[in-house]
Design a protein around this nucleic acid. Sequence first.
DNA 1: AGCCAAATGAAAACGATTTTCAATTAGTAA
DNA 2: TTACTAATTGAAAATCGTTTTCATTTGGCT
Lengths: 146, 146
Amino acid sequence: MIYTEKRTEQELRKNGFKITPQRRAVIDAIAGSHEHLTPAAIYNRVRREHPSIGLVTVYRTIEVLAGLGLICETHAGGSCRSYLMRRPSEHHHHLICSDCGKVVDFTNCDLDDLESRLVKETRFKINGHLLEFLGQCLECSKIKGR
Amino acid sequence: MIYTEKRTEQELRKNGFKITPQRRAVIDAIAGSHEHLTPAAIYNRVRREHPSIGLVTVYRTIEVLAGLGLICETHAGGSCRSYLMRRPSEHHHHLICSDCGKVVDFTNCDLDDLESRLVKETRFKINGHLLEFLGQCLECSKIKGR
DNA sequence: AGCCAAATGAAAACGATTTTCAATTAGTAA
DNA sequence: TTACTAATTGAAAATCGTTTTCATTTGGCT
Ligand SMILES: [Mn+2]
Ligand SMILES: [Mn+2]
Ligand SMILES: [Zn+2]
Ligand SMILES: [Zn+2]
């Protein structure tokens, strides 16, 4: 936790961004949760300790962190995105309920063969991938099933 | 193509929805494209043949079709959703260059085993998936490499 | 201590989506 | 066919999330 925050600040500095109290607060909020947080949820958490921060600053900080690949973005149903601190060991993906938004993590994605095939065919250098399954959780399919 | 439209109308009728010229037009627009279309893109296609339709009607029709599972929703970067007629085998994915934005399509994603494992473990009903590889195309890695 | 580009916050602008409401229409029953 | 009615439609307004603008402040450097 502490380590993640430190590493994130280092990375910001290394890329020429300034360390401000507001950015620290946003980083702490995201790193302090193992849940995916929407921009509004991050804003609410940050405001507890830092009531004067603007929602704009949250959006701007998210943009910087995502640009550096320090947080990862998830798209749930509707038009709603959320963010999670990217931790080195935690490569994982999501199974998302389009109805209620429930998110289930999974880790074994087994995309290595596909990746090397794509590298050979396209000569791209591949840095990562985004994989999400969309559907309905058990509860929601029960409700709809009737 | 014709078949898809017919089947979609049947399904609407079966669930007590009325068949209107506007709904026909929206269905034709989505079924007539093998690309993912945003609500606005659907609206533009529909207007060519049906200039008086309202964007609201497009949204409402999308909602109905998605509710019945006849179209599937994709979330691309930012806050942008798009829709594709659900056809038993036609989908594709993207390999995206983070530097210049070039997009390469590919189709064999081979996720069936993973999908059935997830269905078994989570009891989700899975409607679709989003898979994107991110990296650098040959040209951009040359530029950066120097 | 002083400089300056980067960062901030308030407010306005923006684009996408939803709600409201009065008028129209598809499907059905007489 | 005609009449009925609940569903559907479109225009406009409202709402929501996000971005832009701009004047002010501040972190990092000399
Ligand atoms: Mn997760
Ligand atoms: Mn494509
Ligand atoms: Zn659910
Ligand atoms: Zn490129």
